[in-house]
């Protein structure tokens, strides 16, 4: 994976973004090192998806800089996909590649589907899958792009704990292989131990560090986040 060899992570400095009079992202500075799996947590409306779009470059920052040595892939939220579109699992994953009939990409799509546990359902119609299976397909499509940085927007929403564990284990393998991953999530408590670093966001950066550091720093955050955390 040449993209991973050149990956020097991602650095954001003083990023600000407002919508109308509301400040959505307020002076965020962060660094995602290569080969790390980072959780981006915060309450609904904290600006997690907005920050992901700003880092990717889809949204224009009001101010600040984002430096990234490699391309960035985003695994979108469920709501942005038309799940009723007539497409098979295999074709959906191959959309992540550039050349539709290119043999290495055909093979790679097959391998990725096996990795996310969807190998046997490659020819199934996307709309016939469960929510968890659809999330696995989206992850496989994101991995197909082989970029140095992968930003995942709530990949574990509305899925059962075993599927969550499986997706996290695939993400961990990617991080171990050198990819930089940022995962927006509603995880809290011990569930954060699956990640190397945790960013707590509520329009501004509340905490950044290892899971234990963040828990210590924001021990009262559980009340703010509510008790409906996965894991």
């Amino acid at each position: 994976m040449s993209a991973l060899a050149n990956n020097r992570g991602l650095r954001a400095s003083h990023v600000c973004f407002s919508y109308g009079s509301r400040q959505i992202i307020d002076n965020i500075c962060l660094e995602l090192k290569p080969g790390t799996l980072t959780a981006l947590v915060g309450p609904n409306g904290a600006g997690k998806s907005t920050l992901i779009h700003l880092l990717q470059g889809r949204l224009q920052k009001d101010s600040g800089h984002v430096e990234c040595s490699s391309s960035i892939t985003v695994m979108p939220q469920r709501a942005s996909i038309d799940w009723t579109f007539p497409i098979t699992v295999n074709e959906m994953v191959r959309l992540g590649g550039g050349h539709r009939e290119h043999q290495p990409e055909v093979q790679m799509a097959k391998q990725l589907l096996m990795r996310v546990g969807m190998g046997k359902l490659a020819q199934r119609r996307l709309s016939d899958l469960s929510g968890g299976q659809q999330q696995r397909v989206l992850l496989a499509r994101a991995l197909m792009q082989q970029t140095g940085v992968l930003l995942l927007d709530e990949p574990c929403s509305a899925i059962d704990p075993p599927t969550r564990e499986h997706l996290l284990s695939v993400m961990r393998e990617q991080a171990d292989a050198g990819q930089t991953l940022l995962v927006s999530s509603h995880d809290w408590g011990t569930a954060l131990d699956s990640y190397d670093k945790v960013i707590v966001l509520d329009n501004k950066l509340l905490a950044y560090g290892t899971p234990s550091e963040v828990r210590e720093k924001l021990s009262d955050m559980t009340c703010m986040m509510g008790s409906n955390c996965c894991g």
Binding site: V74, F85, L95
Partner: peptide
């Protein structure tokens, strides 16, 4: 063809 598929299934992704 492939762009039309991408645009249909994931319009935001196609733009990105």
């Amino acid at each position: 063809y492939q762009d039309l598929v991408f645009l249909g299934v994931d319009p935001d992704g196609a733009i990105a």
